[in-house]
Amino acid sequence: MSKDSQGPLWEVFVQKKAGQPFVHCGSLHAYDKEMALENARDLYTRRSEGSALWVVPAAAIVASSPEDIGPFFEPANDKVYRHPTFYQIPEGVKYI
């Protein structure tokens, strides 16, 4: 990092209200975690979009890569028996 810089990149996740999942909403630059949290508040929740925030150093995120998408997710493709529609239930049976 050069002497004058905007600091490292952080990814921001917002929870709209308790009970809901944290959703990625964008990124920002900040020098430390306190500043990252305050910047996230100012940048991504100006209209009460959230009641809780996570900020994560972008460098700490491990991501799958699109070239390997086929083989990587392949194990799920031939396991239709993981879905309820795979099973046949005799007619007339209720609540299942």
Partner: peptide
């Protein structure tokens, strides 16, 4: 300000 924030971090 950027310099100080970086030094503090």
């Amino acid at each position: 300000v950027r310099e100080a924030a970086m030094a503090y971090a």
